[in-house]
């Protein structure tokens, strides 16, 4: 059963096509990795899945993204971003205390301040950060390490109870240790959420993903050449470009 379906999705600026005619189904409760060389529209594609890209750039989208069989444009844009959460490459805590980082987005959906503590506890527990930060909830989120910040951002999104989590190279700014922690976390989250993730790290994609979509720059724009089960992709890719890409990464 698919929760998110892209139908002939294209993106372009005034004078450049970024990606063209992409149709993918993202089945529920799985980790989907988007891989491929830089500059072929993976991040743009990812952020177009919840309409974030159009609000902040002059990129225009064509085609449809269906969430629960409904075009995402029909949803309330603010609500949609809560159901389809986004985690960026750079850990992006707000420059306030850890607690305030949760309270600001929560105050938009839940006026009952008494419940906040429990929500904060649960979300931090889920990302395994509670024991590390329970004594410094009122301190600036900027004092955390990179890996902690990224987990905090994840917890902050989880507090809003999203259905789908979009991650844009969430571990590329982190050290290997923190990367593994985040990966374990994603595997854990898979049971209840759908995860779509851009990564340049092929071993990582192999380790955690269920399906892989392979992006390639062809005929002046980004395209998806393959979208299939991870095991099959890494053992027997169907296109030459994918084979080349896997082999160069192995070196």
């Amino acid at each position: 059963m698919s929760t998110l379906i892209c139908e002939r999705l294209s993106a372009s600026t005034k004078n450049k096509v970024i990606f063209h005619d992409i149709s993918i189904n993202f089945p529920k409760n799985k980790i989907h990795c988007l891989i491929g060389p830089s500059g072929c529209g993976k991040s743009t594609f990812l952020l177009s899945l919840n309409g974030l890209i159009e609000a902040h750039t002059n990129i225009k989208m064509r085609g449809r993204v269906l969430y629960q069989s409904k075009d995402i444009r029909e949803f309330d844009p603010i609500n949609l971003k809560r159901t389809i959460a986004t985690i960026f490459q750079e850990p992006s805590p707000l420059p306030f205390s850890i607690k305030k980082n949760f309270e600001l987005p929560l105050s938009e959906i839940n006026q009952n301040k008494k419940e906040y503590e429990e929500i904060i506890f649960n979300s931090l527990q889920k990302v395994g950060l509670w024991n590390e930060v329970k004594d410094m909830l009122n301190q600036s989120a900027f004092h955390l390490s990179g890996g902690q910040k990224q987990r905090l951002c994840l917890a902050r999104s989880l507090a809003l109870e999203p259905e789908i989590i979009l991650l844009d190279e969430p571990t590329s700014a982190l050290d290997p240790q923190s990367t593994l922690v985040i990966e374990d976390l994603l595997k854990e989250l898979k049971r209840t959420k759908t995860i779509i993730m851009v990564t340049h790290n092929l071993p990582q994609a192999k380790r955690i993903s269920d399906t892989v979509a392979f992006f390639w720059w062809e005929q002046c724009c980004g395209r998806v050449l393959e979208h299939m089960n991870t095991d099959i992709f890494f053992s027997a890719p169907t296109t030459e470009q994918a084979l080349d890409y896997i082999n160069t990464q192995r070196l």
Partner: peptide, 18 residues
């Protein structure tokens, strides 16, 4: 902070004031 706050579903008025 615009992208981050929008990704968290924070309204523009909250963003501006808080």
């Amino acid at each position: 902070y615009a992208k981050t706050t929008e990704a968290l579903g924070i309204n523009f008025s909250t963003f501006i004031y808080q």
